[in-house]
Nucleic acid binder design. Sequence first.
DNA 1: GGGCCGATTGTT
DNA 2: ACAATCGGCCCG
Length: 194
Amino acid sequence: MAWRGVYTFYMAKATSTGLKPISRRLFRNSTLEIAPKLLGVNLCRRLDDGTILTGRIVEVEAYTQDDPACHAFRGITPRSKIMYGPPGFAYVYFIYGMYHCLNAVTEPDGTAGAVLIRALEYDGANGPGRLCRQWQIDKSMNGLDLLDSESPLWLSQGSLKSDETIEITPRIGISVATDRLWRFSIRGNKFVSK
DNA sequence: GGGCCGATTGTT
DNA sequence: ACAATCGGCCCG
């Protein structure tokens, strides 16, 4: 089929241009270990027309099962179900009647956890709602494997620059557990949300 | 079914 | 400081 040929072409391009997925091994770590390690990693998005977007992650937040600010805190629901599954998959939720937010699921199968991706080094993708709007990410992408470059959304290798440091602050926009310093960002990066 | 609230954003 | 805007979830 013609479309399969196109598909294969972009697969080859994705790997040959250095967009190889990061190791699934990273996701064997705890949520709080993974979150800062996602800073500098590239988020990749293949649009319907084949265009590939990439942007470094510059701001994240950690959420865990025993955390009252986490959507999984009150157990398994249709929305939180994906967070209780295996790590490395996308958790996308709809909020405030108009925005979507993207997370990477963490913790082993049976335990919930996630890292909210709050900003990319990409124009218009600063802030979790703006990121998903700019990159056309919605709930149809809930459950995608973020460690597979055949997904329309995946994580590829990337790291902090030698002069970059990590800033650790309270999470934004929550009304409980505001004392936890679970927000991680690249200090001074202009794409970090305000 | 009803009602409240929200891991946001843009405007007043 | 507040409005926009609607799905998710708890309650009854």
